[in-house]
Design a protein around this nucleic acid. Sequence first.
RNA 1: GCCACCGUAGCUCAGUUGGCAGAGCAGCUGAUUCGUAAUCAGCAGGUCCGCGGUUCGAAUCCGCGCGGUGGCUCCA
Length: 637
Amino acid sequence: MIQITFPDGSIKAFEPPVTGEDVARSISEGLARNAVAMEVDGRLVDLYWTIDEDARVRLITVKDPEALKILRHSAAHVMAQAILRLYPDAKLTIGPVVEGGFYYDIDMEPLSEDDFPKIEAEIAKIVKEKIPIRRQEVSKQKAKEFYRDEPYKLEMIEDLPDGTISFYNQGEFTDLCRGPHLPHTGFVKAIKLMKVSGAYWRADQSKAQLQRVYGTAFFNKKELDEYLHFLEEAKRRNHRKIGEAQDLFSFHDEAPGMAFIHPKGMVVWNMLLDYWRVEHQAAGYVETKTPIILKRVLWERSGHWENYRENMYTTAVDDEEYAIKPMNCPGGMLLYRSRHHSYRELPIRAAEIGLVHRHELSGVLSGLFRVRAFHQDDAHLFMMPDQIQKEILDLLRLEERIYHTFGLGFHLELSTRPEKSIGTDEQWEQATEGLRSALEAYGQPYQVNEGDGAFYGPKIDFHIRDALGRTWQCGTIQLDMSLPERFDLTYVDRDNERRRPIMIHRTVYGSIERFMGILVEHFAGKFPLWMAPVQAVLLPINDELVGYAREINGVLSQAGLRTEVDDRSESLNKKIREAQLQNIPLMLTIGAKEKEAGTLAVRTLDGKVKYGVSREAFIEAVTDHVRQRKLELDLFE
RNA sequence: GCCACCGUAGCUCAGUUGGCAGAGCAGCUGAUUCGUAAUCAGCAGGUCCGCGGUUCGAAUCCGCGCGGUGGCUCCA
């Protein structure tokens, strides 16, 4: 008899060999039905794994977080099986689980989404058959024989360490796989193919182009529907649609990847920057501006000509080569060098809303999220080594303040020295330690990405989280050990020696264009009052009241509110409907009663109406709300 | 750049097997003067993304180009 210990500490004896299914069934039929795999002494294995000695066992059921990955991995196999049934000549490569689902890269004729129904029908058959999925272990030699006509699988086996190699079988389908997998294909009920795209074998453009088929799977239809609903909601909030509907910005064929910001979009833009300036002024920043077009020699000195030229637009003026800046830093270096600096001035915090151009590949452009021309809320901080920790800590707090104003959460990631890098071990040690100790002092948890830093220094990235729970990398803090060297930046220390300052590049919004796009989606087009392009629209009930509405509009404008009069000869219902669809936070209906009493009837976007508000009370409530940059539209609560 | 899909009025879209280019909304004009999510009527609006080809005939089929959407990082 062997003893099996469960997570709750209880122990049960079994006659070996025993499988996870036996163990589950000995507890309850329900558990046996819902168990998909198990953990034996900390190792995740199939439910049919046989245990023949004492072990600690945790059964994984459909409720456990690990189960979803197992399901999706099996789902990838089921999809591959269906595709092989329909396209017998297809050659399988890899089929991993990814965030939101799985994919399988297959060497086959090009697929389109029109092919999905028949593949899904075949998948449904496989699921209905509840085909047992079983593991099989063979020698490397036998594995190679089995795959003698499968070039990709052979290549993968070559890369595996010697020893036994595991396969998984389900009916006529066999795939090289580490596992674990579900007990049978019947669990893959809620599966949906999502999209298809080209991908290269080993992500190498010189290698074969494969069909990457994406799918997602859940344990039940309800969760799948919820996920599809989430995708619908994200689609509904798409900033490109909202941007057009609310007249914020546009794109034109004549300038692909470069946004035209409309008057209403410019209000949002200016509010973003007004706020940014308030915070940066308080944090001891100065603002600068550097040219957009600079001579080639500068880019050679900065290293961009060598390392970044593919992404740079160039031009010739008077027989001399120039480049349109893809980054602000080289210009910032010249600015720093324009005179001597004393240690007494440090730290210098020089911000710049810099317009940069980067020639991104046409296929990666995407609304405001990925453009070829954008404004960075850049800043270059110059300091002495012993000031690093405090500067970084202040920066972490500044970024936190700003993100919280928009109701955005975030998490932090620290990236350390990559293999290919410049600088000495001591420099890296000091720089990374500066970032790390600031993060420790800041006190929030952070993730470390070893070797993910830039070649010129370590960095901290901010990944903000929007209202739908999606994350976006916006802010970044990068320590740069290269440019101060290349541009021979110095300051005069108290001992009258010239020393090299430490330099940090950083952003908060990242790209203003992109941040605006993120906010459009985060707020679903319903900007908080302080950012709203139009804060209140006045709706005269009939044409006789238009004059009075204009009079009120003048008063509100004078008080600094952004208001408009809807003076069309349309019904009140229609004017309200359109104001609602434009997500204008406040609607002021102007009727005879309001004119007589000299008060306002205020409707908020949630449909609530408050009557009899005095002009003064309204102006005060709005200006107060705006001054505090509140997010909730709780004007009179 | 590569793969799949897409491009028809300002917007959203319809347009059978190739046979005279349509609707709703928006716009303009007129009527209506309305109390919290679409009043009615009329008018106007087109290089069917561009270029070339096939055809008696192309929005429709073919090729090239331009632009857009999704993907091209996740490694049994």
